[in-house]
Amino acid sequence: MVKFQKFVKHFPNEKYSKWIFIIPGTVLLAFFALPLAAIFVRSFNSDFFDNAFSPQAFKALELSLLTSSITTLIAVAFGTPLAYMLAHWKFKHKAWLELILDLPIVLPPSVAGVALLITFGRNGLLGPFLQVLGMNLPFTTAAVVLAQLFVAAPLFIRSARIGFAHIDQQLEESARVEGANQWQLFSEIMLPLSARALASGAVLTWTRALGEFGATILFAGNLEGITQTMPMAIYLGFERNIGVALALSVVLILVSVVLLMITKQLDKEEE
């Protein structure tokens, strides 16, 4: 062991030691970059535009954009107050609440799909209640939104919570001294100061909602124009005609790249 330490001590001169980082880092980077590149290489042929602009692809894109936008709006409308409470109020069992909100981020979406089905399904926990209201959720576009909300909204809440928590405590105190109420404090100080964190969280949620697959296929099913989103069309396209699946993948990658660039920009301005 002593010998080994001596060996290591000799080793890290600037010239060589950097490769300890470069080699494994590059290997992993290539692992991410190559499959993405492969999709582009294989999809660009004469049929690309026919595939990417087929009516099925168009309907799927339209549905994906619509549902993910609604999801994001709901996440912001309901997630902002929740994140604000978690960041600034003190109450019991807060850690448990945060755990519940972080769980959907790490759970497999298939778990979310089954959970939604046995909660909001016809025979689910709330099924009889929803039936009285004349609501039947599974296999509808609303089910697509709920599935996306379940897996994607926690990303917004997390980002917003961190944004709110980073605001200087003194600002809050001085506002209180000046006599600001909860709403004024929120709307005139907290909201403007955390706007970028909120926006970046919203875009993340949007991107994740756009890519949602596992929960959707279980809870919402697959029907063209009603519940068949882009990821679903890609999955089925893979079996019908791989060209369609590849072309749709390219479109989805490009949309996601744009959205991620927006978050990056927002995070940069934040700093």
Binding site: P138, F139, I217, G221, N222, L223, L236
Partner: peptide, 15 residues
């Protein structure tokens, strides 16, 4: 009346 086209037959059974 068809509300979903499932990816394999066992998914139909499940629903």
């Amino acid at each position: 009346n068809v509300v979903s086209n499932e990816n394999n037959v066992k998914q139909v059974v499940g629903k």
